[in-house]
């Protein structure tokens, strides 16, 4: 028996919105530590890694490890039927070929359940090596979303250059060029609003705007985002989800010809 109940059901709605543009199907791996999802997009340019810890749920039971392959468009359709304040419960029997989503309104007067067929996905599990990054940048997630949106008007690619002075986002295209520089916040009153840079070595990398814009669909999950960069390795864009886990996106850099 698997059962995961979340009073803040809107988190699951937001998680689906944050991954469904990148992935059409994925496996939810459930064990007694929680729920993990890890999948590359079809073109193997980006990878999504989601972790929701068991202790972040209001009720969590997983008697046997279970891997549930799901069509994410179908899951997104179902979760759109949940109210923002609904409690969401996912449940499945051991060895089941379906999963059930139950939505309860705050006053318990409306209870809906949606049963969905599971898919048999034969997906590879990937090991993500522990990496020491040359630069990490923490910044408000809404600011990062704004920068990605604004710069994608100028070109398909965005250059992210991090030095100890700050971080510069640049794009160049037919209409001209755009540069946005963020300095590290001098004094931190509210950590959520701060730009904090940790740098061992300066790094400049180029990324596809389209993917960065997909990642920013996770903005509503966290007030802050963390970017981790080293030369010639994938960028990591991490949104921490309060008290329950995180969603991390990995993106292969563009390579100079």
């Amino acid at each position: 028996m698997f059962e995961a109940r979340l009073l803040r059901g809107s988190i699951l709605k937001k998680v689906l919105e944050a991954i469904k543009d990148l992935l059409t199907q994925a496996t939810f791996d459930c064990d007694d530590s929680g729920i993990q999802l890890q999948a590359m997009d079809n073109s193997h340019v980006s990878l999504v890694s989601l972790q929701l810890r068991a202790d972040g749920f209001d009720k969590y039971r997983c008697d046997r490890n279970i891997s549930m392959g799901m069509n994410l468009n179908s899951v997104a359709k179902i979760l759109k039927c949940a109210g923002d304040k609904d409690t969401v419960t996912m449940k499945a029997q051991d060895n089941a070929d379906t999963v059930t989503f139950v939505f309860e309104s705050p006053n318990q007067e409306k209870v809906s359940d949606y049963e969905m067929k599971l898919m048999n996905l034969d997906l590879e599990h990937l090991g993500i090596p522990e990496t020491e990054y040359s630069c990490t940048i923490r910044m408000p997630s809404a600011e990062f979303a704004r920068i990605c949106r604004d710069l994608s008007q100028f070109g398909d690619s965005m250059v992210i250059a991090c030095t100890k002075e700050g971080v510069k986002f640049s794009a160049t295209g037919e209409i001209g060029s755009a540069n946005i520089k963020l300095a590290q916040t001098a004094s931190v009153d509210k950590e959520e609003e701060a730009v904090i840079i940790e740098m061992d070595e300066p790094v400049t990398l180029t990324f596809a705007c389209q993917y960065l814009n997909y990642f920013t669909k996770a903005t509503s999950l966290s007030p802050q985002v963390q970017l981790s960069m080293s030369a010639d390795v994938p960028l990591v864009v991490e949104y921490r989800i309060q008290d329950i886990g995180h969603i991390r996106y990995y993106l292969a850099p563009k390579i100079e010809d």
Binding site: S43, H125, G127, Y250, A252
Partner: peptide
């Protein structure tokens, strides 16, 4: 100009 890199090779199949 630039070409899009791929993730294959960065991660190992486990």
């Amino acid at each position: 100009s630039t070409t899009q890199g791929r993730l294959d090779g960065f991660f190992t199949v486990v």
